[in-house]
Design a protein around this nucleic acid. Structure first.
Length: 455
RNA sequence: GAGGGCGUAGCUCAGUAGGUUAGAGCGACAGUUUGUGGCACUGUAGGCCGUGGGUUCGAGACCCAUCGUUCUCCCCA
């Protein structure tokens, strides 16, 4: 028997970690509900067909596929062999795999809306907090199993939704006490730029190239644009576009001048302006940054796009989202516009941990440990615990009659702040000795007085 | 998908140019102390040196593969 191990990129979470993660989940969940979103859960696995082709070529490769059962069935050897042949040719086949682990929460949500659109009340607002799986190579801030927390609104074109979703970002990170920048851009602006520089069909090439700006620098981006056939004049516009700096106000103005008159860009600028205006008074507005280099890989986005970056942290984006006009048409139900955001809990955790931003209070534990000094004493302690627990005071008794030393050390290790000693003396006087381990002080408390105390 | 670093006790790590029986600190356990912890002292346990193969008279050290981990690229949360 070899040593047990975990699959690559997966983790166990100990008590302290779970509590800190719950703190993040709870913060996000509470804010989602405060904005009128309701929960949804979908299965860990989906039909492979539901997921394939939705995340681009790279994405397809990163989907965890589930091997069909019964491939070794002698009656199916021919079909299985055929299936493997197709796999080797790079094709997918239900003969080998027909299910896969979900890759994100947005596509399963779109599938859900498509399946139930007749029964849902629109606008439909749902939030979803579940793990997703990607067959990516793990590294810092990247896992093969990680949680996303999504909130989406479908069935409404209103920009008020974008306003609310950005407000959710700002509120959650304020509550988590984490400094962030919520970047805003608009696919309509990128489309406008593409129209001005070489045509709509080059939009994808263009966005991929400019998305790399902060990584490889303008020189390399220009090289790539050259390869993709952008003229010197077009590159000059793109360069000016990327060099836009200043306040949000000033950036929008510069952009407006640069792409003068382009209908799509004008619309995109107005939409960003709309969201910024709504937040102008809030005090959190300073964290909203118009960033025209933001592209986002998923090409189902059609309007405003968002990305959240923690300030002063070596970590990729910790959240992202945007508007998609027609996601459910992938599943045969057209004309359901939507907009959504996502929080990457695992990365948020890593950043909060690195910056030491978890409040001490998240590590909830036992408040009182009753020492075990024998059968009769333990029984009395048990009755007292019932009273305390009814008052929601977490307490426990050391299960074995052991030396003081051992019981003290147990309390210490678990970080239990108080211990109660009931020995034969106390038992006969109907009182107990309460000791605070942090201060070292102790007092005698009558049994009936215990339940009225605060811990 | 491409490339690099690392993997020795529960934890953090030593282990020189391959050479007998693989070490330390912390932790755990026991005792000094059968109703008052944290300190100290004494002692004890704990290792298929990630796994499998190879080179060698001899491998924890070298080679190959594999798994895990970490970092970079790609892409992303």
């Amino acid at each position: 028997m070899s040593k047990p191990s975990l699959p690559q990129g997966t983790r166990d979470f100990n008590a302290a970690t779970v509590q800190k993660r719950q703190y993040i989940f709870q913060t996000i969940r509470t804010v989602f509900e405060l904005y009128g979103f309701q929960p949804l859960e979908t299965p860990a696995m989906e039909q492979l067909e539901t997921l394939m082709g939705k995340y681009g070529e790279e994405g397809d490769k990163l989907i965890f596929k589930i091997l069909n059962n019964g491939l070794d069935n002698p009656q199916k050897v021919t079909a299985t062999a055929e299936g493997f042949q197709k796999i080797l040719e790079g094709k997918n086949t239900t003969q080998i795999t027909e299910r896969a682990l979900r890759y994100d929460l947005t596509i399963p949500f779109a599938r859900y809306v498509a399946m139930h659109h007749g029964a849902l009340t629109f606008p439909f607002k749902r939030y979803q907090i579940q793990p997703v799986w990607r067959a990516d190579r793990p590294q810092k801030g990247r896992y093969r199993e990680f949680y996303q927390c999504d909130a989406d609104i479908v069935g409404s074109d209103s920009l008020l939704n974008e306003v609310e979703l950005t407000a959710i970002y700002l509120t959650v990170f304020k509550q988590l006490n984490l400094g962030v920048e919520v970047k805003l851009n608009n696919r309509k602006i990128l489309l406008g730029l593409a129209q001005v520089c070489g045509g709509e069909d080059k939009m994808i090439d263009l966005t991929i190239a400019i998305d790399k700006l902060d990584k490889i620098g303008w020189e390399k981006v220009a090289e790539e644009l050259d390869r993709k056939g952008f003229s010197a004049e077009q590159q000059k516009i793109i360069q000016s576009y990327l060099e836009i700096e200043g306040s949000n106000e000033s950036k929008l103005e510069q952009l407006s001048r640069l792409l003068n008159g382009n209908e799509s860009a004008v619309k995109g600028i107005e939409e960003i302006q709309y969201v910024l205006d709504y937040h102008a008074q809030s005090g959190l507005a300073k964290n909203l940054v118009a960033d025209f280099t933001l592209a986002r890989g998923l090409n189902y986005y059609t309007g405003l796009i968002f990305e959240v970056k923690a300030i002063d942290a070596q970590m990729g984006s910790i959240g992202g989202g945007g508007r998609y006009n027609d996601l459910t048409s992938l599943f045969g139900v057209p004309n359901v516009p939507g907009v959504g955001i996502s929080f990457g809990v695992d990365r948020i955790y890593d950043v909060l941990e690195e910056k030491n931003l978890f409040p001490a209070s998240v590590e909830q534990n036992t408040k009182i440990l009753f020492f075990n000094l024998g059968e009769a004493e333990a029984k009395e302690a048990y009755h007292l615990m019932e009273t305390l627990r009814a008052k929601k005071i977490a307490c426990e008794i050391y299960p074995d009659k052991s030396k003081f030393d051992k019981q003290f050390k147990y309390a210490e290790k678990k970080g239990i702040p108080n211990i109660i000693i009931i020995g034969s003396d106390e038992l006969s006087k109907k009182e107990c000795t309460l000791k605070n381990l942090t201060t070292g002080t102790q007092q005698i408390i009558p049994f009936d007085a215990l339940a009225t105390m605060e811990f």
